[in-house]
Design a protein around this nucleic acid. Structure first.
Length: 594
RNA sequence: GCCGAUGUGGCUCAGUGGUAGAGCACUCGAUUCGUAAUCGAGUGGUCGCGGGUUCAAAUCCCGCCAUCGGCUCCA
């Protein structure tokens, strides 16, 4: 496969994309004189430019903009850098009346660099640029989409019109890029989920509410069983809690105050109850429930750490424009656990949790993630608890990451409202980032719920909580897994592990008999009952991405054997039935291929 | 929630004002076949939903719903 450089890897691409975005902005202002320019940076696969335009752009406009760009390129305008003082820049912006540029200028330090396209157009820009627009190849440029974007990324500010585009050194690179985008579409979990029959959505049930089919449910419960087993080995205690609770519970936790815009509306018996906020709500998180179980008895330091674990389904009222496939839904299941520990146990227990998470990712062959320290920002309205608790929590997370020598980056403002997090971020097929696993240190909820344990000296002490979820959510995890594997699940996860294909109908009884034998061994086997020819059966099994196919003809029946074909390696030849079962069982328990 | 696009049988899509189409899937019949599509016939659609314009609407207009690409937000 041809390597396509990303912008950050190539100075030349940076120049191409900066210059292309300026050419685009100039073209837009030529065609839409009322449009004002704001910012237009490069991104990894292209660039965008945001405009404030009284009339929104449509995708049809992209064609005429592209045409105009081609003209500008053909005029071979020199790109000239000029450095001016802040005062001079201010003066020039005032003459062309571009308020957004003015605002940008306020944040800049002299000297201010300006890039000119000939004497036709200029913009504030750090660069770098090509020397001449003629160096661009119009056939290596594509305008991709229009979108709304808020000025300075702030919902309360003006909404701008963003145009996304991409630009390359050669038309061939553009073709490869577009081909790659097509390929990414083919591994999109929404498409594969439908094709493989794993889950559905229906308007009748509602947006963001997936329904799991039999095959998808096998996938889900296989993942659940896997993690439950790992957790039992590590001293976790399973619990089950309801999906709804009184509002009061969430007032104590702080959810009602800080999180209610993300919650489904309350269920109240009547208007009076509604006004008094006496009703029930769907749970957006499991923590307050687990806390109640902790609180149900007087706890001794000898019981800690107490690790309460549940696959808890939560409901969050996500904004409608945010929903998408399995990666962003309104009802999802968190592989949740809350660990109640003494302050002395915190560091060690945190490391245990990270160890569990990393071992889970390893088993799932998920290597492509980034670890983020999600800390609070300066907006104290968003958070509960005092400074001291936050500092202690963030310190604990930082120590853990340093102890492990783990690569990480900081996400300021990414914390939960009750505490900081260590998050594991993955990418989907379209390079969008999603958080899966998470570990959180929390001094605040123990305080709010007045949690206690009896210490060695008989005194009452406050435990610290760790919230953690290796998968994050089963839905999102499965979405990412489908795309990572392109639907080709490893044997232990495959909803159907082996499909038996009879060459002729009269061999069906033998196929059914072998199937029952395999099922009795816990293997997910099925017989293709369609009665089609072998070629068709194999084609269907390949399309269904069944890892192991077992062909049954006369010679197989006579020797009580199967002809094995795997998706991974093709025809493996004749093998005794008992041998096949043995090999499959081994592969399943060892998480390996057949 | 905001900006833009899209919505036609189970799936993928064609159909721009005049009697709803194709391929796959499904059902039936014939074929009994050895590693990626056997042949033939048939069933199946309130054209997302509601309203409007028109002699006539899948097609034009308005509202809503959902999906997709972004923005803000998040597991």
């Amino acid at each position: 496969m041809n390597h396509l450089p990303r912008t950050s890897e190539s100075d030349h691409l940076k120049r191409i994309r900066h210059t292309t975005s300026h050419v685009m902005a100039m073209a837009v202002q030529k065609l839409f004189p009322k449009a004002q320019v704001t910012i237009g940076p490069w991104i990894e696969n292209g660039f965008y430019y945001d405009f404030d335009s009284p009339e929104p752009f449509t995708e049809k406009d992209l064609k005429s903009i592209k045409k105009e760009m081609t003209k500008i390129i053909k005029r071979q305008l020199p790109v000239i850098r000029e450095e001016v003082t802040k005062e001079e820049a201010l003066r020039r912006i005032q003459t062309i009346q571009e308020p957004y540029k003015l605002e940008i200028l306020e944040g800049l330090e002299a000297p201010i660099s300006i890039y000119h396209l000939g004497d036709q157009w200029w913009d504030l820009c750090a660069g770098p640029h090509l020397d001449n627009t003629g160096e661009l190849n119009p056939d290596a440029i594509a305008l991709e989409s229009v979108a709304g974007a808020y000025w300075r990324g702030d919902e309360s500010k003006a909404q701008l019109q963003r145009i996304y585009g991409t630009a390359w050194e050669t038309p061939e690179q553009l073709a490869i890029y577009e081909h790659r985008k097509q390929e990414a579409l083919r591994r999109d979990h929404r498409r594969l989920g439908k094709e493989l029959g794993l889950f559905i959505f229906t308007d009748v049930v509602g947006p963001g509410l997936p329904l799991w089919t039999p095959k998808g449910t096998i996938l889900r419960s296989t993942l659940e069983d896997f993690l439950k087993k790992e957790q039992l080995k590590r001293g976790y205690l399973p619990v089950v809690t309801p999906h709804i609770a009184r509002i009061d519970l969430f007032k104590t936790s702080g959810h009602w105050q800080k999180y209610s815009q993300d919650m489904f509306p309350m269920m109240a018996d009547d208007d009076q109850s509604r006004q008094l906020e006496q009703g029930f709500v769907m749970k957006p998180m499991n923590c307050p429930f687990h806390i109640q179980i902790y609180k149900s008895g007087l706890r001794s330091y000898r019981e800690l750490p107490m690790r309460l674990a549940e696959f808890g389904t939560v409901y969050r009222y996500e904004q409608s424009g945010e929903l998408g496939g399995l990666t962003r839904v309104r009802g999802f299941t968190v592989d949740d656990s809350h660990l109640f520990v003494t302050p002395e146990q915190l560091d060690a227990e945190f490391l245990n949790v990270v160890d569990l998470i990393l071992s889970v990712f390893q088993k799932l062959q998920l290597n492509n993630f980034r670890a983020r320290l999600s800390f609070r920002d300066g907006n104290s309205d968003k958070y509960i608890g005092d400074n001291d608790a936050w500092e202690k929590s963030q310190g604990a997370i930082r120590r853990a990451v340093e102890t492990l020598g783990m690569d990480h980056f900081e996400g300021i403002g990414e914390a939960a409202f009750y505490g900081p997090k260590l998050d594991f971020i993955f990418q989907d097929a379209l390079e969008r980032e999603w958080q899966l696993g998470t570990v959180q240190v929390d001094y605040n909820l123990p305080e709010r719920f007045a949690l206690e344990y009896v210490a060695e000296d008989g005194s009452r002490q406050r435990p610290v909580m760790i919230h953690r979820a290796p998968f994050g959510s089963l839905e999102r995890l499965i979405g990412i897994l489908i795309e990572e594997y392109a639907g080709d699940f490893p044997l232990w996860l495959a909803p159907t592990q082996v499909r038996l294909l009879a060459v002729t109908d009269d061999l069906m009884p033998f196929a059914n008999q072998v199937m029952r034998e395999m099922v009795a061994h816990g293997i997910r086997a099925e017989v293709d009952q369609s009665g089609e020819r072998l070629g068709k059966l194999i084609r269907k099994a390949e399309q269904d991405k069944i890892p192991v196919m077992a062909v049954i003809g006369v010679k197989e029946v006579e020797s009580n054997a199967l002809s094995i074909r795997t998706r991974a390696t093709g025809d493996l030849g004749l093998m005794e039935v008992s041998k096949v079962i043995e090999r499959m069982e081994q592969a399943i328990t060892n998480f390996t291929l057949f």
